[in-house]
Structure formats: structure tokens, C-alpha cells
Design a protein around this nucleic acid. Structure first.
Lengths: 181, 181
DNA sequence: ACCTGAACACCGTTCAAGT
DNA sequence: ACCTGAACACCGTTCAAGT
């Protein structure tokens, strides 16, 4: 048996478990997803999961980390696009994961680890949005408040699906300072 | 035994159960609050709760309804204040209940009933905010988008506590169209 | 009508035992 | 090192039995 076969397998199986959890969390929701269901979807026993992950919350964090890494990876392909385009693309991606977004918010106050993840995520997206605003020519002293408002708007759109035109109207109001014409 | 004693008692005890649940939901969170804990706090047996309420979710809805009624009741005292003042006052009240806010969002997609409550709540707050914007002189065609953005900002502030000055900066940017000076 | 103790189903997690 | 079946603790909920 080759020396490096085990680690390979370990990563593969771990990835399968995380992938199964990601799908179920997005479809059924975190709270309603059973560890047994994750195990079934991943083709292992329930107890096996605990060999790869400390508990259900750690599984959630693994899913979040994987998701974030995937999004950031795909984003590299879009470096040449405008910051606004990049942001809109992120919104689309997160919209598919709105259940996970609300779950993170719900657990952020209760769980130290999820709270830390949430803070880290916002540091990243805040910085990205601020950068975009500066590139668009927003004066420096307005950047912080606009960044906040922008993030709030994005989260709001994630959690309250709106018809495309209304969604667009909100984002236009946000960026240009006046609603549609 | 007087004819009307029972109904009185029933309402009292029901109110005690809902009050106990409201406190625990706000402090510990909905998911982490045990029906046994609610019962203990209300001075009844766990099973007794099920005489007054169908299940845990119905208990949540009772808490939400009571909270909303209380807030709207108190708001009557402030009719002479400006819409902005009224809104700020509501934000403060909801800020004490941010756990409940995230819980509603988390369950809104899963539960029909919570989803309906959430929609009703937004209809109400959206209408209030729109009214306030009109009174402040916002042109009619900008009202819808600004209302949306305003609600998103408020929810954002509820879920991401900010230092007072930054909170103020966001609200000012929202209402005046430019950040602090 | 209202309340209860005992019991049930379900779920996250642990553990002793296997390979 | 990795995996499992059996068992445990906990929780929402039900039910037969009481007043």
C-alpha cells in the first residue's frame, strides 16, 4: 500500500461529507438537516462523520470555509471586470445560499466560532466594497458609511427576494443616489 | 364559582407562558430555549404548555404577536413625534429583540406561518417608512426604492451592532444622501 | 376544562469494539 | 488510522389518567 494513499482518501472522504452537508444545508436548512441525513448522502455511517469533524457546528464551519474558498477562487477569473460586476456576481452566488446566510446570522450571537467566521467574512466583503466605491470616485469620507449601507442592502436583497427591476432600483439608488427614472 | 373566572385565569396563565417564552427567546434564543425551561419559568408542567399552544412554533408566533401589539400600542403615545423619531424608537425596541429578528428570518423560508408573519410585519413597517419619506418630501417615484433600502438598513443595524456615530452616519447617508461631514 | 406523569420518537454525540 | 453498532442524554410531543 503506497505511503500517500491514506491522506488522499481522507481528503476525498472529508470533501464528500462536506459536499453532502453543503447541499443539504442549502436545500433543507442547517437546523433541519440531520447528521444521519448527511451521513446517508455521503455514503458513510453517522458516527464516521465524527472522525472527520468535531460536531455539527464544525461541519457548518467546514461548509462555510469551502464555500468561501470556492467563491474567492472563481472570483479570480473576474479580476478584469469592474468592482460593481464582481459584487453583483457575489450577490448572485450568495443568493443561492440565503439559507446559510440567515443561519450564520442566527448562530453568530450564540456561537463564538460562527461569530468569528461572520466577522471575518464581513471584513473581507467590506474591504472589497470600499475598494469598489473608491475606484468609482466616492470621496474618502463617505466611503465607510456607504460601505455599511451597501453591505446592509446586499444582505437585505439576499434575505428578501425582490423582482429584478425592484432589486435594480435599490442598487441604483444606492450607487447613484437617486432611484429609477 | 363565578361564570367568568375560568376565562380570566386562562388568559392570565396563557399570558404568563408567552411572557416566559418571550424572555427566554430574547436571552437564550429560540432554538436553544427548551419547552421545559419555558414551563419552569412559567410555573407549569411542560405538557401544560400544549394545552395553550399547539407546538413550539405556535409559541413563537404568540410571542411575536404579543411583541408587535405592545410596540404598536406604545407607538400610539408617539403619534405627535416625527416619523423619523418614531422609526428610530422602533429600531431601538427591535434592537433589544435582534435574536428574535434573526430567528424569524431563519424560519421564514421553512415555516409557512412564520413566513406569513414576516410578510405581514414588512407590509406594516414598509408602509410606515414610506409614509415618513413622503412627509419629509421625497418625490413619489423614489419612495419605493428608498423604502426598501431603508428597511434593509434598519435590519442591518439590528443584526450588526455599530458604534452610535457610525450608526448615525449610515442613517444620515440614507436620509440626506451624503455621509457625515 | 384543565393539568399531569409516564412514555415515545427523534437527534446529536459517545464509546467500546472491530479492522 | 479509520470505521461501526449499540447506547446515552436530551428534547419536542403525545396520551392515558386524573380533578
Amino acid at each position: 500500500m503506497p505511503r500517500n494513499r491514506r491522506p488522499q482518501d481522507r481528503e476525498t472522504k472529508s470533501a464528500e461529507i462536506v459536499a453532502a452537508a453543503a447541499t443539504l444545508f442549502a436545500d433543507v436548512g442547517y437546523e433541519k438537516t440531520t447528521m444521519a441525513a448527511v451521513a446517508r448522502a455521503a455514503g458513510v455511517t453517522t458516527t464516521t462523520i465524527y472522525w472527520y469533524v468535531e460536531d455539527k457546528e464544525a461541519l457548518l464551519l467546514a461548509v462555510l470555509d469551502h464555500l468561501l474558498a470556492t467563491i474567492l477562487g472563481d472570483l479570480e477569473q473576474l479580476v478584469d471586470r469592474s468592482p460593481t460586476d464582481q459584487l453583483l456576481w457575489i450577490v448572485e452566488r450568495l443568493q443561492e445560499q440565503s439559507r446559510l446566510v440567515t443561519t450564520v446570522h442566527a448562530l453568530a450571537t450564540t456561537s463564538e466560532a460562527v461569530g468569528a467566521w461572520h466577522d471575518g467574512f464581513h471584513e473581507l466583503t467590506d474591504a472589497m466594497l470600499a475598494e469598489g466605491l473608491r475606484e468609482v470616485g466616492v470621496p474618502e469620507e463617505r466611503v465607510p458609511a456607504m460601505t455599511r449601507l451597501g453591505v446592509f442592502a446586499i444582505e437585505g436583497l439576499l434575505m428578501h427576494p425582490l423582482p429584478p427591476q425592484e432589486q435594480r432600483a435599490v442598487l441604483e439608488l444606492l450607487t447613484t443616489g437617486h432611484g429609477h427614472g
